[in-house]
Design a protein around this nucleic acid. Structure first.
Lengths: 135, 135
DNA sequence: ACGGGTCACTTGCATTACGCAATCTATTTT
DNA sequence: AAAATAGATTGCGTAATGCAAGTGACCCGT
């Protein structure tokens, strides 16, 4: 059940960060406040690419940066990520404002549409603002 | 994002097994074909109970067996489990018949209702028959 | 009521994964 | 050219995992 890929503490978190927080680069993932180690991050990014969930390319304008993006397979995880987020919001203390959670819970399809739209448009604007999204 | 609880290879698999395959006992989990080790299984069951996702009680009729059940918090994971299952069915080889997957994808709410109904009625009949559910 | 089997774990131990800090190479900035 | 930055990689100690064997409680047929 996909747990060969997501059966660890970090993979889904990375997917979520690129999906709803608009993260693109190694540094952004590293400094996301979750505390992943750099070697583990490198290994997970490699694995997510191998699994066809992320793609990577050098950023134009800065040849050092590598720009990670979701594939179709990756963005198709949006419903799962959303449901996990909603469950977490219900049962765990979260920094996300209740109003935002409420809106996402009642407009799931609209929220997903928005995620897909931003993905298709390569729009890195966060779906969830900076308040810690889903801890 | 709940990954302190599910950030491992086995926890969600256990939840799925009790949720849709009707598993209740240690032996059933152990022999589910996934290959979890008994010490790890014991530890995960303990953790899921501590997290308030499972409860345990001795089976009436056999004082050796311990009957694990989902809590409300546990059954509320159904949407997330369903979405992960659908994603897996789409992108991984699965033993589940395409017709079944199709039906679940198009009748999500009905499928979830059925899971909740069986949970409320304490009905261990598998939602997914024996074909390997969601590998 | 005794012996064998079942059930839910535990224990011991080798292997693997992880967290952390330091280091490396390529590229960009000053 | 020198310093800084980005994306990793390496070394190492600790924690988690897999595997086989063992433990104690309980059931069942004789």
């Amino acid at each position: 059940m996909a747990l060969e890929i997501f059966g660890d503490r970090w993979s889904l978190l990375i997917v979520r960060d690129v999906m709803v927080r608009g993260y693109r680069t190694f540094q952004e993932f590293l400094q996301s406040g979750e505390g992943i180690a750099s070697n583990v991050l490198a290994e997970r990014l490699k694995r997510l690419r191998a699994a066809g969930i992320l793609t990577a390319q050098r950023a134009d304008g800065d040849g050092r940066k590598i720009c990670y993006q979701l594939t179709q397979k990756g963005v198709d995880l949006a419903p799962a990520v959303l449901e996990i987020f909603l469950w977490s919001a219900k049962y765990e203390p979260t920094a996300a404002p209740p109003a935002v959670v409420e809106r996402m819970a009642h407009n799931r399809e609209q929220t997903l549409q928005e995620v897909r739209r931003r993905w298709a448009a390569n729009d890195p604007t966060p779906v969830l603002p900076r308040f810690g999204a889903a801890r």
